[in-house]
Design a protein around this nucleic acid. Structure first.
Lengths: 208, 208, 208, 208
DNA sequence: CATGAATGAGGGTTCATTCAT
DNA sequence: TATGAATGAACCCTCATTCAT
């Protein structure tokens, strides 16, 4: 449909500008100018400037969601870790293929206002739940060590977010995405230590 | 001096509001109302609304910096990991004791505009360098496994940022900060695996 | 075009107010109120209050310029003095037909700020050059007595400016513009003396 | 008296700034800073910023007035023209010795607002009356040709104002003030023509 | 559907003046 | 008398949104 196409056009242009300047520094004027439409036309397709931003965020979150398949635990399914990594790969590929969207998500959406924050919180919580479940399952299976799964899940999310932020902010094409993925995975799975110290409280004489 | 005290008062109030509503949604009117001063008085202490925000951020970054002592490597120094953890503890304690400041740093400063982003980038880069150096040193000493130190450093930063964000956004008093610290440390050091798998490519038949 | 017409409307109203109150005492509120437009509309047609003023001045100077035809010296041209007087008549008629503009030029533009002063200086300098050239030509032709042409040119300009200021400030319709013109001309050409005194230094025994 | 001295100091400094930036662009801050006094102190000596300006103008007009001696017509007095020129010399010397004051008078006072304009109008009118009387007397004595004395008086004032403006705006020290005076005088007395044309209507076939 | 002129609430900032010390 | 912190009215300008064409 033509209407849908036009709307898409505007969203595309708006994404460019939002990703560069953020929500508040982007004017409707910027958007309509770049989109080549009239002021009034803009309001035919969107109710407000804010709706454009929300639209972009919603689409993005949905796209990420689409790439997150629940970990199948039935016998015969691929190993859970493999499934987890496939999820990660799908999402990361999408994010790196859509840098402007990712930029908006990581730099401009967070802290925008309460409404937006709640939306993101919900999303990350869902993600954390998913990761947490996998961790719990891993623990049950004896693969994963005992840990606070919620905390660990958020650690993983934060770790990935920060690295993506870095990858994106530097304009360099990611030389070797696979290497990055492997590094992250190793870090998440193995930590930084070369060998696990023989006794656990090796740092200082902690009582706990 | 009295003048300094007044300024501090305004900064305190501004911090409250900025942390709640972010930079753009906060009006000078909000600040002066909450601070109980007249409009003109505000501009007696600050050149602009933006300067208030910058002042807050700069102070915060400086306070964090003060708590980051370079890792001493001389013989007789405490173990590097212990020093690293002490740094972390000092910073985290400060951040959790000043939730509003932390909220501003993590939620509202990032993506504010190019200038602010560059400031933060510089700060995190310095932090990453510090962590990276420690990692390199650990590798040399045979404590830390081979890894991309820069990537790993940013992973650690991101991990900590996200967990703090979570701790702060939930209004609950952190039940057991020590536990959180230990969990993070374990995750960073050991990863999530219970045992290191015997052969390295245990996930799927990767070519690399 | 409609847009141009609206702009003209605003300029007209602004001219009224500027001529009465000067630049600084005129508010944008005054202008939009008198023009019957909304605040935002004003900035649709002008970038700033200052631009309105500049626009008025620029147009005025251009209109004056249009009425100043260079003195033609080719054989067959009308006598230079006649051309000069025609220039003067054209300009004066315009100025007296547009009293508010003239008021702005003579009372409010001068001393507004450096930028405006430079603009006016440039204009008057050009005018002085034109008059100066005519004087030089007159001297060559034996019509005009030896004199400092630059000084004399500015004298003429000042003389005219002041008289116009007077004509305009009194609200009375100029009874007899022709008479005024002739008086000015006579004064400029003949001075005030009835007869040239036989010897030059007739006032007091000057050494020079 | 000390109080008077302090006040004088401030007026001096204010004169500097007003002459450079004009009334509206000069802040009380500028004045007190340059005068080295506190904000409150300023208002001990002056009721308002405007009063400072008025004070300056009033003093200036009074000083000029002091230098304008009425033309004595009693037998035995010096020739009126000589008296007139002495007046002019006294005033011009003062104005050129006090360039900043003159700058304020000629560039910034005119058009400031109605009140100030009326004050100046009054002053110039008085001046014009004085010159006009002399002219009338000259006519009676057969020295001066028939003319509209009021118009001619204002012509003379305007002529002098403009030339002074020029002399002052160029920072150059006036090389030869006497020469300027003589030029002006010649222009005023003789006009620009070398010889009076034999028949009066020499420009074009005017009916008058 | 499309346009773009018009709107006006609201924002940040300035600055002459006051007043408690 | 001298100070300078405090005041708040007023200013210019922006910009998301509306609406007549």
């Amino acid at each position: 449909m033509l209407k849908e196409k036009r709307r898409e056009q505007v969203l595309l242009r708006a994404t460019e500008i939002f990703s560069e300047k953020g929500y508040y520094s982007t004017n409707v004027s910027d958007i309509i100018e770049k989109a080549g439409i009239a002021r009034g036309t803009f309001y035919l397709y969107f109710q407000s400037k804010r709706q454009v931003f929300d639209s972009i965020i919603d689409t993005l979150l949905k796209e990420i969601d689409l790439r997150l398949k629940p970990i199948a635990l039935e016998p015969g399914s691929p190993p859970p870790l493999e499934q987890l990594q496939e999820n990660a790969t799908r999402v990361l590929t999408y994010l790196l293929d859509n840098r402007q969207l990712t930029q908006i998500l990581l730099q401009h959406a967070e802290g925008l206002d309460q409404e937006c924050d709640e939306k993101l919180d919900g999303f990350y919580q869902k993600l954390a739940d998913m990761i947490g479940s996998s961790l719990k399952h891993g623990i049950t299976m004896g693969l994963v060590r005992q840990c606070n799964t919620r905390l660990t899940a958020y650690s993983i999310i934060g770790l990935v977010k920060e690295v993506i932020r870095q990858l994106i902010s530097s304009d360099e094409d990611i030389a070797d995405l696979d290497e990055v993925g492997e590094e992250l995975l190793k870090f998440g799975l193995l930590g930084v230590l070369l060998t696990v110290p023989p006794h656990y409280r090796w740092i200082k004489g902690e009582s706990k």
